[in-house]
Design a protein around this nucleic acid. Sequence first.
DNA 1: GCACGTCTCGGGAGCGCTTCCAGCTCGAAC
DNA 2: GTTCGAGCTGGAAGCGCTCCCGAGACGTGC
Lengths: 336, 336
Amino acid sequence: MADLPKRQVTLDEVAERAGVSRSAASRVINNAPHVSKAKREAVQRAVSDLGYVPNATARALATQQAGAVVLAISSDNAQVFADPFFAEVVIGISSVLEDTDLELMLMMATSSRGQTRLERLLRTRQADGVMLMSMHGDDPLAQLAEKADVPVVFGGSPVNFEPRYSVDADNRGGARLATEHLVATGRRRIATITGRMDEGAGTARFKGYQEALAVAGLDAGRVAHADFSEEGGTRAMQELLAAHPDLDGVFVASDQMAIGALRVLRDAGRSVPDDVGLVGFNDISTAHHTSPPLTTVSQPIQALGREMARMLLAVMSGEDPTPLILPTRLVRRAST
Amino acid sequence: MADLPKRQVTLDEVAERAGVSRSAASRVINNAPHVSKAKREAVQRAVSDLGYVPNATARALATQQAGAVVLAISSDNAQVFADPFFAEVVIGISSVLEDTDLELMLMMATSSRGQTRLERLLRTRQADGVMLMSMHGDDPLAQLAEKADVPVVFGGSPVNFEPRYSVDADNRGGARLATEHLVATGRRRIATITGRMDEGAGTARFKGYQEALAVAGLDAGRVAHADFSEEGGTRAMQELLAAHPDLDGVFVASDQMAIGALRVLRDAGRSVPDDVGLVGFNDISTAHHTSPPLTTVSQPIQALGREMARMLLAVMSGEDPTPLILPTRLVRRAST
DNA sequence: GCACGTCTCGGGAGCGCTTCCAGCTCGAAC
DNA sequence: GTTCGAGCTGGAAGCGCTCCCGAGACGTGC
């Protein structure tokens, strides 16, 4: 491994050593035409002799392109990161950015300062594009980003706001799958525990539940709202049991909530899956280890990141891709 | 929320509107002295009238400071990200970076291209500092980073290589705690399943196990090596049972492995905790939900990120902090 | 042999900011 | 009233790169 020279080698030095002008050197660095073969080779030799590496900052200033994109995550809800979710998204993104010259900047916008920072970033074009995972439609970041003249793609659709570019998992379809599965295993009095209804995933999963029951001609009135968390699931299951003691199946909009619900059912002496069938959502790793292991809906998280990045690149290069919805699938385990 | 103007407002425009020179304007932007009160106020007014935001790229070029730090994660081992580990570290880092003007860049260096990218980043000073979570001592990134003239702090010490600046969890102490606990609950034939021995966490936890048994005057010869994964734990537990059927306690160097081990013990008809006490490490969320729930060692992951960032800032501002070791603690559940 | 097109080449003007420096002003001290 | 020093002030020189443009070099077709 070559030592890192203290002082930066500049393009001028390369040009001088190669006996050409700076313009010419620049052209060969950027693979631009209009350079004779001889000079091109001379420059290339100088580059490797000197160990020249272009200064990205200077280039950014001259081209008005940052050479970086940002992943902004805005949530007051730490549960978004539950399980390897966040890491997987990032891995997906990185894998496609790896083939480009773009760096990835990260912005956790939990506080209101996050908004200021993102705004600054966008206004000064420190980033050429934004991937935004924002759960609330009223999130100022969402509005802000759409307004900026920088490409923005959304991961997971916010509620009450239709972003131009987005990739999302098929929450609705997944919920339908889950509910249909409950129906198929003979349940007839099927309840649901919803997630936060101010998040796209929350409303979409609820819709899927309703649709499936409508198709089956069953009552979709056994509903308790919660917040995706385990405690929320616990509380909601208690409500449900009190209000609808006859229920024989529950579609729960997250595995965390399902874990809470499972405990409540057990404590209430209901056997899962014999008395009550239970389906979760997300397929977090814990879902394997509950007793009984949880039937759940799995979404392709790494692919989500990958497709967000791909879509962003497309938009950045002038294309106009259509929103993408990634398939979810049912993972059948012992809770149904 | 103010609209984002298409074209960037420059310092010259601010200066002109305020009726001062660009130098003066720059001084007030940077809170530098030698500006009269009148002019200072005029500039401030112009700034807010125009909605001026300094261009970070230009500033970076002029000052030779990037205004960004990078978190580089290098691992061929996706399990590093298991559970919210990664997200928590990032949250910790973000929380301290939030009070600075530094941006966070992310670099997942799984491939060898990662090395090239990091090298480029460092050579062109696109980053003013590096936080490196690298698990292998022979990781070229580690060497590379230490050699660069950019501050580097390590998260989690690599094996066979003593970084100058690092923050790590007290793996050894935690392992000692876990093993002592096994002793305290009456176990006498205590085995261990180690993690990867080419990672600092692997060797440190093994050492802690040995120390505790040495102090207790017990035999530390019941050892099986694995790789932190659930499958590895399964295999290792089988080996252990075959070689030392008399064991009555196992310290397992990760919860994932402990989950595998738990299953093997159950299948072998050994009751946990009655026949065999089991302690894991990491306190992943699943550890609550195994049966029985897993006694384990918890480490302060968010604090790890926070302290890495703090230490980096310290080094960047010329200080010379000493390596930091964060305490771990035993979380007692039903498996012991 | 000449006019014309094509390609190569280097000069130079930025990109938006910081910072050095020389020149000023102005008040205090004598 | 003079001398000094301390604080202001703006001009100008960069930071390292890109890219436009005009000047040459060279070849082609007639």
